[in-house]
Design a protein around this nucleic acid. Structure first.
Lengths: 299, 299
DNA sequence: CTGTTAGCGCATTCAT
DNA sequence: ATGAATGCGCTAACAG
């Protein structure tokens, strides 16, 4: 013990990993930690991992397939015990490979159409439905939707929820009321300018995420209009920005911290062999957060 | 080669690490990735690390000494090649231990008074000076300052810069014009309410960071006043929030991405034995970003 | 230049 | 119970 203290001895986890074939390490492939959508997920992951004695390798892929594959290779060489893919673009074949080798992994905020895997997502369809129904309940009928990129499954589901809610309430969804955005401010800004120039402009906009909504806000203000007096606006995600005074966006909350937590829990179950054969697919419920960007339609 | 493909063989980096005594891994101890101040630093770190062939272990400490020490121990056991401490509360003795053992590490956005170490910080004094000078140049004389927590070296430096700028321009800094905040919205909100209730309220406020400024914004609005018409407001850090339309905060930019990049570069130099004996201490220049929360004093 | 071997620091097995 | 030997998969040193 005296020697331990004097020499600063510390057990070598690398040697231990080599013999036990376990590193107590999880790889996390995320598109960009700089995007305010992700930090809470990461925090949830890290908290649960730390509680269970695991460390996290963080890898920013910018949603580029090549970078994801390069990181995947590296993580595998470093013998991580499992991998979490957050909003990953990784191809089906790679994922299928992992499955075939029985390597533990889980998807967060992304599903794959043709491969059965563990995942944790929010119910995007239900969330969008909630958003649009809220607008309808306020008397809006001419409701526009600015979508996310059409290769994102979440964006498609939100579009679906929008259309369903409109149809269920007997409202028609003019093609000109649906604009494609890119999940970023710029796209929301441009799409909104188009919407405002329509001969019959919408009285409300459901943006597929909060960034789009913030872009929309800017376009609306620049046109000399006010939210919610002239136009109601609903976002999606409930990122921290949305709650700021001066923004105060009505939006759909996505329980990101919890998603990270639960994904990690499921992954570690698999790693430690306590998981069953069936994939565990968690679909968390979204929640309508009413702030002051929506208002009953005048008249 | 055929066998490699068939069996999915991959070199075992753990075994390699064991023999080479190098893991190509860096530990990052950060207080909370959920705080918008940090993601850009982390991204800078990860980008440079990845470029140099290193992976990053991310550890959220919530600025708690015990958690930092626990993580430190873990990282050392896992034989990371070096550690980056971002805004760490770690004690001098621990740091001194690391130095004594010649273990590579670097501090970002934090210095230690009594220990010589590598670090990367922004020039907080110069930044604060810039902020206050800007207000003075707009004709403000009664300028308040809401500080950060007084145990943060950066907060102290910003207070120093405020006082220096005031003194240099022959303005007196009434004690009642300096309020202590906590680097968060709530503190800024409360401090501002006190400032507004002063018999002679300030015409401008320099907040020690952007969160404080956002809290101040809310207090000002609630009092029925407008920024910048009734009160000018300057923040510090230039987090993403500050640039949103509807916030548009004049602030001091802190080059966070670059700080992460440079810290990692310096650290890897040390790890790979190319560093000199002297500590490398980088003090980056802050920059005034003028948006629309400041205005020439009427009259 | 290719082929063989020792050893990194641990955990596990077997012998004492 | 405690102690000695083996091997995890690789790299580096050495031999042929």
């Amino acid at each position: 013990m005296k020697a331990i203290a004097e020499l600063g001895y510390r057990p070598n986890a690398i040697a231990r990993s080599l013999v036990r074939n376990v590193t107590k390490t999880i790889g996390l492939i995320i598109s960009d930690i700089t995007n305010p959508f992700f930090p809470e997920i990461v925090r949830g992951i890290e908290d649960k991992a730390s509680e269970m004695g695991y460390n996290i390798f963080i890898c920013n892929s910018d949603a580029k397939v090549e970078r994801e594959e390069a990181y995947l290779e590296l993580l595998l060489e470093k013998r991580v015990d499992g991998i979490i893919f957050t909003s990953a673009r990784i191809t089906d074949t790679r994922i299928a490979d992992l499955r075939r080798h029985n390597f533990p992994f889980i998807l967060v905020s992304r599903t794959l159409p043709d491969v059965q895997t563990d995942y944790v997502v929010v119910d995007n369809r239900a969330g969008a439905y909630l958003a649009v129904e809220h607008l309808i309940s306020l008397g809006h009928q001419r409701i526009a939707h600015i979508t996310g990129p059409k290769d994102a499954s979440g964006a498609l589901d939100r579009l679906w929820g929008y259309q369903k809610a409109m149809a269920d309430h007997g409202l028609k969804t003019d093609a000109e009321l649906v604009k494609e955005g890119d999940f970023r401010e710029q796209g929301g800004y441009l799409a909104t300018k188009e919407l405002l120039s329509l001969s019959s402009a919408p009285t409300a906009i459901f943006a597929a995420n909060d960034f789009i909504a913030i872009g929309a806000l800017q376009a609306i203000n620049e046109a000399g209009l006010e939210v919610p007096e002239d136009i109601s606006l609903v976002g999606f995600d409930n990122i921290h920005l949305a709650g700021l005074t001066r923004i105060n966006l009505t939006t759909i909350n996505q329980p990101r911290y919890k998603m990270g937590l639960m994904a990690t829990e499921v992954l570690i179950e698999r790693i430690e062999g306590r998981g069953g054969a069936d994939p565990v697919q968690l679909v968390l419920e979204p929640e309508l957060v009413i702030r002051s960007s929506t208002k009953r339609l005048a008249g």
